[in-house]
Amino acid sequence: MIGDMTSTATAPDLSPAPGTDADATPARGRPNGVRLDQVARSFDIAQGRHDVLRGLDVELGSGEIVAVVGPSGCGKSTLLRLIAGLDRPSSGVIRIGGTALTGTDPRTAVAFQEPRLLPWRTLEKNVALGLPRGTGRTEGRERVRHLLQLVGLEHAAELRPREVSGGMAQRASLARALARSPEVLLLDEPFGALDALTRLRMQDLLLEIHAAEPTTILVVTHDVEEALYLADRVLLLRSLREEGPEARSLARVVDVPGTRPRDRADHTLAELRVHLLEGLGVTTHQTTTASTTSTTSTTTEFPS
């Protein structure tokens, strides 16, 4: 799946989580996966060329949740923008379901760190913005109503974004992204601006939604715990700034063990957390040696 790694089974866990919305629309067929081949992105700056991403080979399996972590400047947001079609790779190819990407794609949807709701529209109308072109009026209204219910905003449908809390706005933003019934859902630090408690609730909400409508999800986050709680796999990117010209962006891939919903206090996750934080250059002051990762998880290292 990654580089020269042998294809270990990454069949997504689609068993519904407890508390799943029972009347959720079932997904039509398997969602498409995403495949990146030797993707690079560089920007021209005053001092010449600055590589943000280099030599990235990644495959997101259908229905898989993949988290991307890395130090600031490692290009994790750039990666998301590339897959969203908001930016183009300097070299390499991105494919969704086998077709190469040429711009924004109706099969993908994005939710950003900021809700980015239109302030002059009610939450309901904001969610409706995400509906695919050509959705019928009644069908669209029905879908929006269902999504607002899914994210717990049915009572706030008629409110404007400035009249609701940050958490509610973010849920509306998520509902808008889901309105497209995306096969690939891209989340750019979606819960980063929320308070700690709301963030935990949103994580569970996302997992419930994924269980009900399993799409392929790429979530960029700076929160290692969040990555381990949500994802099937965690990609650790390295910043290319201090690296040689041969270094590649992908530093480490962690297959997260166990099935969702995960125990936040799980011992294996705690060890993986230390492991990932070390990869990010953070000292964790742990007394036990952190290098002994659990045997149930697989970590693939990609030295630069």
């Binding site: 908001l86 924004t104 109706p106 949807a109 980015r116 239109l118 002059w120 913005l129 695919p132 072109r133």
Partner: peptide, 24 residues
Amino acid sequence: HLVEAGRCFGLRGWSLFRTIQLPA
């Protein structure tokens, strides 16, 4: 940010102007 969000949801040219830029 709003314009980019609009582009994400497939708005272009006139529809982008009508839906986001003009109301803004």
